[in-house]
């Protein structure tokens, strides 16, 4: 039974990773950059929900909505101010800027909201007991999985059926050609950041409901793990993010249960290194040969 429990924990944790990984994968697919600050957007979203629900005593749904709105705006502002001026710059410069933004958000949050950890009130409480005293699923876990599935279906439909989704795919394939076809590339990139950040807000609320501690550095490690998930599944691929996220969640949970709690990060990152060595394009990614 503990095996089944671990599988359930792993899948629900993995669903959260998958939602975060989507943000990485979409931005990477279009802007070809690793948005290092993505994890810290999660943290900002969680803080927003925390204040809305804790201090102003709004209902949970309003807290989530506020988090989504603030994070979307934040994502667009970050893109405009920090990344857009560097569109032609070498990737090293963009990456260092992204690290700067991540640091800025973390330390800004620390100054604004204090370094002390806060206790997050979960948006849903209680557990569903399947087998008394042996097998149970918390409602947060169910909610995470449901959210993840809804987001996946929604995004897949969005990118394949709608005009905006098609412009996104066109931009990720060839920006110059897309521009020649009359697509506004800058607006498309902004939109991608907006969607990614909105997803980050949802993931932030879910994550803090499942593990209710909140501090300015809450987002950074899950962010990096989710990036690992995105790479695992194949960066740029939406189903890959889902697969990578869930596999990583299961690996992490099993690593904690059967190897060592202290070494769970080491296990996750060892997976990353092995994947990159054996299959650099990830499980579902396309291998793109370099053209000279």
């Amino acid at each position: 039974m503990s095996f089944l429990n671990n599988v359930i924990t792993g899948i629900s944790l993995g669903s959260i990773y998958a939602i975060i990984a989507l943000g990485y994968t979409m931005v990477y697919g279009i802007a070809k950059m690793l948005n290092f600050a993505h994890g810290d957007v999660i943290m900002v979203g969680a803080y927003m929900a925390f204040f809305a629900m804790g201090r102003f005593e709004l209902p949970a749904i309003a807290g989530v909505l506020l988090a989504v709105v603030v994070c979307t705006a934040l994502g667009i502002v970050i893109e405009r101010l920090a990344y857009k001026p560097l569109r032609q710059a070498p990737s090293l410069a963009v990456l260092i800027t992204a690290i700067g933004v991540s640091y800025f958000l973390q330390n800004g949050a620390q100054i604004l909201w204090g370094a002390a950890t806060k206790t997050f009130t979960p948006i849903v409480n209680g557990t569903l007991v399947l087998v008394p005293e042996q097998l149970s699923i918390s409602y947060v876990a169910i909610l995470s999985v449901v959210c993840c599935i809804v987001v996946m279906i929604g995004l897949t439909l969005f990118t394949t059926r709608t005009k905006m989704g098609k412009t996104m795919r066109a931009c990720s394939e060839d920006k110059a050609a897309a521009q020649l076809m009359g697509i506004n590339v800058d607006a498309t990139i902004s939109m991608t950041f907006a969607i990614g950040s909105a997803l980050a807000a949802i993931a932030g609320v879910l994550m803090c409901s499942a593990y209710p501690v909140l501090s300015p550095t809450t987002g950074s490690m899950p962010g990096i793990r989710a990036f690992t998930a995105a790479v695992f599944g194949g960066i740029g691929s939406i189903p890959g993010a889902l697969l990578g996220g869930i596999l990583l969640g299961i690996i992490e949970t099993f690593g904690k249960a059967y190897i060592s709690t202290d070494l769970s990060d080491a296990v996750v990152f060892a997976v990353l290194i092995i994947v990159l060595l054996v299959k650099p394009a990830g499980l579902m990614g396309k291998y793109v040969p370099e053209k000279v």
Partner: peptide, 28 residues
Amino acid sequence: VPVLRLQGDYLAIVTLAFGQIIKNIIMV
């Protein structure tokens, strides 16, 4: 040896991961 076949962002994230692994291992 394994990682320098990668470039750019991947190398950055793997070195980051490595730093974390070292920290984790020394902690136990």
